[in-house]
């Protein structure tokens, strides 16, 4: 790929999605965009780039952005955040929101739905505590294709075996041929909508818990700061933020601080959420 073509594509992706591509990711551009070029009746990736240069075709730009945003996900990915959620975050919210009985959770990169559904399953497993609560789990992603899959709640045999204990598969899924489909009681707990983290957050409302794992790694420093600062405004003062294990707020924002000894868990700097969670 020519340098000017790489610069053109990476510039476009950064502007659209915040995705940062370095030269060593050229293979990724080629492997993901060549099939898209063919689907569009073009012979090569070069032809696709030509087309993009000639005219700002919004549909094509969206397809390119979707093809390039990573969508790998599985149930209970990395375990630890879900253990923290179950043992500390959810009990803290049960206490703190006991009067209004209202809980809002945002999965900011919901991808194909495994993360929000994992949270829904955990809450369902303690339904005696939550059944008269109004719980909203909102899954957003920049990619509308993955959200369609998320909404369907249908997964391959391969997908349901990565992270999902067999007891939960038996309890919450129905087998439909080769497909394993989540029961409506879990699917109905999550709502999905397309959302770009670069846009403003007005309209999403406020949250008690935000999961934003393995997204910031694709952004440059100023974008990371901007996203985290906006998240701070939508998150309750006693709320919690989950980031990926390889991500941090240090040197990026003063709005959050890490909870000591709990990898990936962050709280608003101005609050005292640790005490509430028994992690102080």
């Amino acid at each position: 790929m020519k340098t000017e073509d790489f610069d053109f594509l990476s510039g476009m992706l950064k502007e659209r999605s915040g995705l940062m591509l370095t030269q060593d990711k050229i293979y990724l551009l080629e492997s993901r965009l060549t099939p898209l070029a063919r689907k569009r009746g073009l012979d090569t990736l070069d032809a696709l780039i030509q087309k993009l240069r000639m005219r700002a075709d919004q549909g094509l730009i969206r397809d390119v952005t979707e093809a390039m945003t990573t969508n790998e996900s599985f149930f209970f990915r990395d375990n630890t955040p879900f253990d923290l959620f179950k043992n500390h975050v959810a009990p803290a919210m049960e206490k703190a929101r006991g009067n209004q009985k209202r809980l809002r959770i945002w999965c900011a990169a919901a991808s194909t739905g495994q993360e929000p559904y994992s949270l829904a399953i955990l809450l369902r497993e303690q339904w005696h505590k939550w059944k008269d609560w109004r719980i909203e789990i909102i899954g957003t992603d920049i990619c509308t294709q993955v959200l369609d899959k998320a909404k369907a709640g249908s997964y391959s045999q391969f997908e349901v075996q990565r992270g999902l204990p067999i007891q939960l598969l038996i309890k919450y899924f129905k087998q439909e041929g080769d497909i394993w489909r989540l029961n409506d009681e879990i699917r109905n707990m999550v709502t999905y909508r397309p959302f770009n983290l670069l846009d403003n957050f007005i309209g999403l409302g406020n949250f008690d818990i935000i999961f934003c794992r393995n997204v910031l790694i694709y952004f440059d420093q100023p974008t990371k700061s901007a996203v985290l600062n906006r998240m701070a405004k939508t998150l309750a003062k006693d709320g919690t933020l989950f980031l990926g294990a390889a991500e941090t707020v240090l040197g990026i924002t003063d709005e959050f601080r890490p909870v000591r000894g709990q990898r990936g868990l962050y709280v608003p700097s101005s609050g005292e959420a640790e005490k509430l969670m028994g992690l102080g």
């Binding site: 599985f74 375990n79 045999q157 391969f158 075996q161 990565r162 992270g163 204990p165 067999i166 007891q167 038996i170």
Partner: peptide, 23 residues
Amino acid sequence: IEAGANEYIMKPFDREIIEAKFS
């Protein structure tokens, strides 16, 4: 599971599935 199995892997499997189920 009723007979006392602790976990269940459906073939084909790969390293990730074994690792996930064993953990």
